[in-house]
């Protein structure tokens, strides 16, 4: 809070003293007015909802598909040997590189943006899940055998709870990436969202609106991180952070 006020004071002082060349950095009062206008018109809320919608779909799709694949790669040698190099290959590619394909495959609207967000998080979650499940101590499985656990029972009662702390950390990182990528994803083939707000404002040389979009994205990013940080406080997850 104190550092935020300090940054605001420096920004205000530098703007008032005319340290920024005209049109490069908007003054805080200009940004505040832009905020007021965007909120009053309802556009900021609509854009925020549009971005959250795309992130929610892209991220959820990635979690639902990446966690099972990560479990298979982490627990079984053959799928690991066959798939892990490809996961690393695709993980190294910037999601931006997929934009041309996203447009060709999915056309315009939400799907290409959701696809880009999905790609940005999918491979990360696969890798984190695989690493977590490969490092589950063997002794848990032996105890499970003694207790008569087999197949799905082992997955539900041992593997999933054992990897949960690492998985929560991975999801926390991934949701940050998803939210970061939304700006790039919304530069293509959509006319809504906070990313589009920034691109549109840049085209109109409205740097006050650009900062308005940036502050909104950053604030929601913090809020999302807090939500995932709270997951780490659930008792059956917290053990992984307190040992």
């Amino acid at each position: 809070m104190v550092t935020g006020l300090l940054i605001l004071a420096i920004w205000w002082g530098a703007s008032a003293a005319g340290l920024f060349p005209t049109g490069t950095v908007p003054a805080p009062d200009e940004v505040a007015r832009a905020f007021g206008h965007e909120i009053a018109s309802g556009r900021l809320l609509d854009d925020t909802i549009a971005s959250l919608f795309r992130v929610a779909w892209g991220f959820t799709g990635a979690v639902v598909t990446a966690v099972p694949l990560g479990l298979v790669i982490g627990r079984q040698a053959r799928p690991r040997a066959a798939l892990l190099p490809w996961v690393n290959f695709f993980r190294s590619l910037s999601p931006i590189a997929w934009i041309p394909f996203a447009i060709i495959w999915f056309g315009v609207g939400d799907p290409p943006a959701i696809f880009i967000i999905f790609l940005a998080t999918f491979f990360q979650i696969v890798l984190a899940t695989a690493a977590a499940s490969a490092s589950v101590p063997k002794v848990y499985y032996r105890v499970g055998e003694d207790l008569g656990l087999r197949g799905a029972g082992v997955l539900l009662h041992i593997t999933l709870p054992a990897i949960l702390p690492q998985l929560v950390t991975a999801l926390r990182v991934a949701i940050g990436v998803a939210w970061m990528v939304v700006v790039a994803a919304e530069m293509i083939a959509v006319r809504s969202g906070l990313g589009y707000l920034i691109v549109d404002a840049r085209n109109g040389l409205r740097m006050d609106l650009v900062v308005c979009g940036m502050i909104t994205i950053g604030t929601i990013g913090i809020a999302l991180d807090l939500v995932f940080a709270r997951l780490a406080r659930i008792p059956s997850v917290r053990w992984g952070f307190e040992r």
Partner: peptide, 15 residues
């Protein structure tokens, strides 16, 4: 039936 008791770490830490 048998049960094995280990040196340490045989308990499930999430329970």
């Amino acid at each position: 039936q048998s049960r094995t008791i280990y040196q340490d770490g045989g308990l499930f830490p999430w329970l």
